[in-house]
Write a protein that binds this DNA or RNA. Structure first.
Lengths: 243, 243
DNA sequence: CCTACCGATCGGTAGG
DNA sequence: CCTACCGATCGGTAGG
């Protein structure tokens, strides 16, 4: 997993630094030091600091999107819109919280503060990914699965917003991100949908859904899973003073 | 509403700039220019840029907290934990989204990227406010109102997280923030609680709950409210390319 | 509250 | 990929 080429190292440490401190608070000297090169050498690999950012934004959005798409594609094609949306949420969460989620997290934490000219290149990708969500929610509404009184646009923004905020508080002390992820999806799903969740299936690999397309997440943990969940409840301590 | 004294003007424009561009991306020259003074003059009112930030963080947390507390206090004392939590969510949202929410929004958007020594002074306040939420959720659990399988800590973080993300996408094009606010609270409430919401009361000023303690939000719009909600559904267009 | 200024640090470049 | 350096801009200050 560790990057082999200096260019990749620069991207990785930059993503980690951008995620932690923001874009403009991160200096090229900090990046260079973390990558164990000299400041000027960054420009051998990138034209500018802005270019490093652009590449991180791109990778970040691709990561969450691929992760969400993989989860949806792993479902049987006749799966309900609700199941697809829950799968997409799990995938999006996975992209953000799994080990190596620095690119996605950096992208999501940093994007909102960027000036328009730095957002621009990334906007199309985000828009495309947003349309993927729009279609899922439109299908859910047509199937009558969205709770009456809820605006489709709001529901989408609140659900994804709750997920996008997770990098703000989730860390290793919460244990396996899958335990947290299941609860988040369950909670959001119950708030959004009318239909009774005919598929607690989603919550475990013992499901009928083929999880082969999502190898990293559908781990060898099959039987111990339920027990782990019960323990999780106690283990999941609150982070200090997090709003 | 417009600030009268220069010191207040500095705080207001700083909050707006910090919210929009982040702390370190905002320069003293930008602040001075927006406040219509010269850069050096900021130091007549504040010891440092850091001090401006500290005051904004303080005001920001106080705003959401006061707003949440006011909503809860306006309930009858025997109100269910669920109603109290929903009231607190409405209040927190109000603090963020209402006109003048720049302090709260700046505080919440910027905090996560700050170095520890800049977070420190604000940490106690946030911790205190977090405990207020902890108590509400603990009461809900003891009353058996939390859906089984959900960890209290996760629920709190996800609910408040969804709310804290709203400054990222909400703007004037969404119309009255109260319409949005009602939907968010409803959606989160349904996801969190077991009990049937015996109180759609929360959703309208025609409720039995005394709203006198929250003057700014319980506006003159009493009868037109329901109709507005119906229209809202169409009016609430998606912001461009917002994840 | 302004003018005039300072040392430090920033992103970035030339030449090797 | 490094050394050595540059102009611009940063947060901040002295003196009025």
């Amino acid at each position: 997993m560790r990057a082999e080429f200096t260019r990749e190292v620069i991207l990785e440490v930059s993503a980690r630094l951008f995620r932690a401190h923001g874009y403009s608070a991160t200096t090229l000297r900090q990046i260079a030091k973390a990558a164990k090169i000299k400041a000027g050498s960054v420009y051998y690999h990138f034209k500018s600091k802005d270019d490093v950012l652009q590449e991180i934004l791109t990778i970040g959005v691709n990561d969450v999107r691929d992760s969400a798409l993989a989860r949806v594609d792993a479902l049987p094609p006749d799966a309900s819109p609700r199941r697809k949306i829950e799968a997409a949420m799990k995938g999006h969460l996975e992209g953000l919280l799994r080990h190596g989620g620095d690119f996605s997290s950096a992208s999501i934490r940093v994007y909102g503060h960027l000036p328009p000219h730095l957002k621009k290149r990334n906007q199309e990708m985000r828009k495309g990914y947003g349309e993927f969500w729009d279609e899922l929610f439109a299908a859910a509404e047509q199937a009558g699965e969205i709770r009456p009184g809820l605006s489709l646009g709001i529901v989408r923004l609140v659900a994804i917003g709750a997920i996008n905020w997770t990098p703000e508080w989730f860390d290793a002390t919460h244990g396996n991100y899958e335990d947290v992820s299941d609860q988040i999806v369950s909670m959001l799903g119950e708030g959004i949908f009318t239909s009774v969740s005919e598929d607690k299936a989603l919550e475990g690999p013992e499901s009928s859904a083929p999880e082969t397309a999502v190898p990293e997440s559908a781990a060898p943990e099959t039987a111990i899973r339920t027990e782990k969940k019960l323990r999780a409840r106690k283990r999941l301590a609150l982070p200090e003073s997090e709003l």
